[in-house]
């Protein structure tokens, strides 16, 4: 999901940073200072969980957990994602510092979108279906935005962009299932956590 350094054009990089700055300012504005500690520890838990290898047949994958982040943190997911991606870039060299703006915007907007669409619905009945759709949708939004960023950089990237979207289809189903299990477990064990 991370776009590497040196691929995107200047215009896309600037647009990504502008979007991220806007998202982060809204996210920080909506986060009460007393909630900062909670957001930090939850985002560190998401960061660690997203590094766990989940075996799929002979291969394995890391889940992005964008939807649970959005559904639990709301707008605070934006600054949390920026911090997580910054740490990933510095510690593991995933992505990079220049493309941080674009990567953070792609993931942040996906997380916030599912929060706006399903944030209330997962608290009511039918939460399993809604959380599954939210998980799958977040990944697909992110994949579409990655494709769009590549397509806007150079028209020749379009085939690669389509391939990326195609590859993310089965991943979105897995993310949907993981989101469904996380939300249903939280709802069963600690319903007040989601409120």
């Amino acid at each position: 999901m991370h776009i590497s350094e040196g691929i995107l054009s200047g215009g896309v990089l600037i647009a990504g940073w502008a979007g991220t700055l806007a998202g982060v300012s809204v996210g920080l504005k909506k986060t009460n200072p007393d909630k900062i500690v909670k957001v930090a520890l939850l985002s560190s838990a998401f960061f660690l969980a997203s590094l766990v290898n989940v075996k799929i047949g002979p291969s394995s994958t890391h889940l992005s957990l964008l939807a649970p982040m959005g559904l639990i943190l709301g707008w605070a997911a934006f600054p949390a994602i920026v911090v997580a991606l910054l740490l990933q870039a510095v510690l593991f060299h995933f992505g990079g510092l220049l493309v941080l703006g674009v990567n953070a915007f792609i993931m942040g907007i996906s997380a916030v979108s599912v929060y706006l669409l399903f944030g209330e619905k997962i608290r009511g009945t039918g939460s399993k279906i809604y959380s599954f759709i939210a998980g799958a949708l977040a990944v697909m939004i992110a994949a579409l935005l990655v494709g769009l960023s590549l397509g806007l950089t150079d028209g020749n990237f379009l085939t690669a962009a389509k391939l990326i979207i195609l590859v993310h289809l089965p991943l979105s189903l897995i993310e949907g299932l993981a989101t469904m299990f996380i939300i249903s477990w939280l709802k069963r064990v600690s319903p007040e956590f989601l409120s």
Partner: peptide, 13 residues
């Protein structure tokens, strides 16, 4: 994996 993640989230809260 989902249950462990949920548990870690509750612990972190």
């Amino acid at each position: 994996f989902g249950y462990i993640t949920g548990n870690i989230l509750l612990q972190s809260e």
